[in-house]
Design a protein around this nucleic acid. Structure first.
Length: 806
RNA sequence: GCCGAAGUGGCGGAACUGGUAGACGCGCCGGACUCAAAAUCCGGUUCCCCUCGGGGAGUGUGGGUUCGAUUCCCACCUUCGGCACCA
């Protein structure tokens, strides 16, 4: 009897061995200019270094580790790095709350998490580790920002921004939740106009949309990005405001309804509205602007006010009243709409409330409908539309725009939901923006040779109207790089999404101190072959990173346009019905469960819970079950070592089963990412082994099970491999199923009558159809169900079944 | 409203291109070992009926295609997710 299984001892032993061998490291190629079909870049989204690992981390990094180990053993050269998304609010808030410097808190967390990661047996190339708060990293981010600035891709403008009164910072639209609260702290978000830094991501809207066709991502993720970009085709139409003698442009996707425009509406935030002198109008605007966006959206009753202005419909010269109403959104289109109450529910509601005319201009080819008629089909025709009457609606719309185009009063246009990316933050713990404000020269970039602009220490991280960096007076006051006069540094910092837009390039060349990276090395490894992470980053992070790559490509720094060739989106891990995330905190600490069950069992557990791309509920029962399996495997393999001789397998049933398992696991892990069924297959093979299984096939089956389990449970696999008399399993080629072993001499054939299973018989695999049918008809059970009659029809699936139809 | 994904035992889930539905695991039941318990091992476990040979039903619902449908088609219901007063 061998000693009992002790996870901790074994796991620590092998982790030492791997570290000594630097088994997790991969060198850059000697000749990066030669493309290498055997290279593979496997990357998981880098973690935010909060206090400790959570269950979500357990899943992502275990998936990545399993894929990486599998790919290595199939002969690929795999890059699998790790780094820290170290800047950001949580560390800063912790510093405000508990004192201390965000840097100290962050670096302490990094030490903890790195230790936990090694404890899990995850192989990351620690010689490539980076952290976004390291000046050696953000220096090159500043450098890239300056390149963007030179091309006008980074710019400053006053814009209404979402302002979190609690965090005292601007939020991206994406960081405001659906109920109008702050993603981070839950406070109600307000609207403010501020000078902000923006990246011109909207220039890339079409490229971001089109290039989705070139990547291998789940369709649902692509759809989310498409929704996010929100492209709609339509037309811009100029309405002359009679009293001001000025044109106002509206965007519409329904130019075919232009003749039905019976009034005109401006959003309260529209710049024209501010110039209206009427006290009544201004009172309404104040009232409307004070309302929260979501209240406005929820309101069924339309409110608004007449402005005394009139707009001239360019298509028919009609003079229609101009209203201000909060049902028109400032964020979409131009913030002004032509209202077509006959064919839009919102406009209709407003017309009813304000007693405005409703005109039908679209009619279904057959029959009448009640207004508003908002659905549309290709068979609809235009009515009450002058010379365009009788045209099918889509064509009519086109013709209307074409005519307006000739007259210079309209044009075909595309509108996007996507806004430019506002990336400045009024917070301390972020990458400084390397510009200087000079009264004489304006915005002056910091010269490349003065980078990095290092983040100075400040007394207090709490923003009080102005960014915390403003306190560092000595740092803020600096000579203007252009004229040498008095200048002031930018005190805002970059959104952390900038940090994560290019980190995967830096891993390729982390030590480079003359450039962000060497182009040849980056082009060798990239694009990332498999990116793994949560759906929560499907829009923001993954759109920003795609944008960044397109810009770098346009500027000639990289040779590709898409960062992530394929993407695996892992599910949410919940525990006790609460989401495990950095916000809600982990209910069960992974560190404790690892202590209790061992890393191998936990790795198996998190993957066995269910399909890795679906949400799953963490239970300790599963950890218990996996620990039981590992112990059983341990015992059984040790028994095999004692009882079963080594040598060529004999090709019996056990060897065959082993080969079948190889085929199954290879497919599950290598192609389908079905980690749970891969584990099941190994368990099934292990179930065939028992204390009294002997013979060379038993030995072979045990070796196969251990070898196949290695990506999942690397420590115990390595230990058992050694006990089976071999060395360095991690360097062994992945086993290949022998096709001849997958074929059987005899096969079980199912016999059906009218599609119902009636019997099973063993027949030679090579049997002919006629012979098989003859054998099938000998079955008593089949004959009983044929009731002595002859089958009307016989279907034979060779090697599988015979179906008699009566 | 539009778009996307999914509905299978008591539970998590399997079934890759239409071919033995319920792999693997949990839980439960029975047994072995034990003074006892834990641990471990062996057997059983979709439901209903049964004369213990079997028989019938069954993958959200209703239709369809097919010798045969969890898988394909149509309609519907439910759940989850994304987008949305988008003019």
């Amino acid at each position: 009897m061998s000693e009992t299984y002790d996870a901790n001892t074994i796991e620590q032993k092998w982790q030492r061995v791997w570290d000594e061998a630097r088994a997790w490291h991969v060198d850059n190629p000697v000749d990066p200019d030669t493309p290498d079909p055997a290279k593979s870049y496997v990357l998981e989204m880098l973690p935010y270094p909060s206090g400790s690992l959570h269950l979500g981390h357990l899943l992502v990094y275990t998936i990545g580790d399993v894929v990486m180990r599998f790919r290595r053993r199939t002969g690929l050269r795999v890059l699998h790095p790790m780094g820290w998304d170290a800047f950001g609010l949580p560390a800063e808030n912790a510093a405000i709350r508990e004192g201390g410097h965000p840097r100290e808190i962050t670096e302490r967390n990094i030490v903890n998490i790195r230790r936990s990661m090694r404890r899990m047996g995850w192989w990351f190339d620690w010689e490539r580790e980076i952290s976004t708060h390291d000046p050696r990293y953000y220096r090159w981010q500043q450098w890239q920002f300056l390149r963007f600035l030179e091309r006008g891709l980074a710019y400053r403008k006053g814009a209404p921004v979402k302002w979190c009164p609690n965090d005292q910072t601007v939020l991206a639209n994406e960081q405001v939740l659906g109920d109008g609260t702050c993603e981070r702290c839950g406070a109600l978000v307000e609207s403010r106009v501020m000078e902000q830094w923006f990246f011109r991501i909207t220039d890339y809207a079409d490229a971001l949309l089109d290039d989705l066709d070139t990547v291998d991502w789940p369709e649902s993720i692509k759809t989310r990005q498409r929704n996010w970009i929100g492209r709609s085709e339509g037309a811009e139409i100029d309405f002359r405001i009679e009293e001001l003698g000025q044109d106002l442009t509206v965007f519409t996707t329904r130019p075919d309804t232009l003749f039905g425009a019976t009034f005109f509406v401006l959003a309260p935030e529209h710049e024209l509205v501010a110039r209206i002198e009427s006290e009544e109008v201004q009172a309404y605007v104040r009232h409307a602007a004070a309302k929260k966006t979501e209240e406005r959206a929820a309101a069924v009753e339309k409110t608004g006010i007449f402005t005394d202005l009139h707009a001239i419909n360019p298509v028919n010269g009609e003079r229609v009243p101009v209203y201000v109403a909060d049902y028109v959104l400032t964020d979409y289109g131009t913030g002004a709409v032509m209202a077509v109450p006959g064919h839009d529910q919102r406009d209709f509601d407003f017309a009813q409330a304000f007693d405005l005319p409703v005109r039908q201009v679209i009619r279904p080819a057959e029959g009448e409908v009640e207004l508003p008629y908002v659905s549309h089909s290709d068979s609809d025709v235009l009515v009450n539309s002058g010379e365009f009457d009788g045209l099918p609606a889509p064509e009519g719309g086109r013709r209307i725009v074409e005519r307006l185009e000739q007259e210079g009063r309209g044009r075909f246009a595309v509108n996007y939901r996507l806004r430019d990316w506002g990336f400045s933050r009024q917070r301390y713990w972020g990458c400084p923006i390397p510009v200087v404000y000079c009264d004489a020269c304006g915005i002056v970039p910091v010269p490349d040779d003065e980078l990095p602009v290092e983040l100075p220490d400040v007394e207090d991280y709490k923003p009080k109207g102005q960014p915390p960096l403003a306190q560092a007076e000595d740092w803020v006051r600096t000579a203007c790089p252009r004229c040498g006069g008095e200048g002031r540094r930018e005190t805002e910092t970059m959104d952390t999404f900038v940090d994560s837009s290019w980190y995967f390039l830096r891993y390729c060349d982390p030590e480079n101190d003359s450039a962000p990276f060497d182009r040849a090395v980056v082009d060798y490894w990239n694009p990332v072959d498999l990116y793994i992470g949560g759906v929560d980053h499907a829009t923001m992070h993954m759109i920003y990173a795609r944008f960044w790559m397109k810009v770098l490509n346009d500027l000639g720094y990289i040779g590709f346009r898409e960062p992530f060739a394929s993407f695996f989106s892992n599910g949410w891990v919940t525990s006790g019905k609460t989401k495990i995330s950095k916000r809600s905190g982990a209910a069960t600490g992974p560190d404790e469960v690892v202590e209790r069950y061992g890393a191998d069992s936990i790795r198996l557990c998190i993957l066995f819970l269910g399909p890795a791309d679906q949400d799953m509920e963490w239970t300790e029962d599963a950890a218990e079950a996996m620990a039981r399996f590992v112990r059983r495997l341990w015992r059984v393999v040790n028994e095999v070592v004692e009882n079963a001789p080594a040598g060529e397998p004999e090709g019996g049933p056990l060897a065959r089963k082993a080969h079948e398992t190889i085929a199954k696991v290879t497919d599950d892990v290598g192609r389908r990412f079905a980690f749970n069924t891969g584990i099941s297959a190994v368990m099934e093979l292990a179930n065939e082994l028992s204390p009294d299984t002997t013979g060379r096939d038993a030995r072979f089956a045990a070796e196969t099970a251990v070898s196949l389990l290695q990506p999942y449970a690397p420590h115990v696999a390595e230990e058992l491999w050694e006990r089976l008399g071999h060395e360095r399993l991690w360097e062994q080629s992945w086993p290949v199923a022998d096709p001849t072993m997958l074929q059987r001499d005899t096969v079980e054939v199912v016999l059906q009558v009218n599609g119902k299973l009636r019997d099973r018989i063993q027949v030679p695999a090579a049997i002919g159809d006629d012979e098989l049918v003859a054998l099938a008809l000998e079955s008593e059970r089949v004959r009983a169900h044929l009731n002595g009659g002859e089958p009307r029809k016989t279907v034979v699936v060779p090697g599988k079944l015979v179906n008699f139809v009566v």
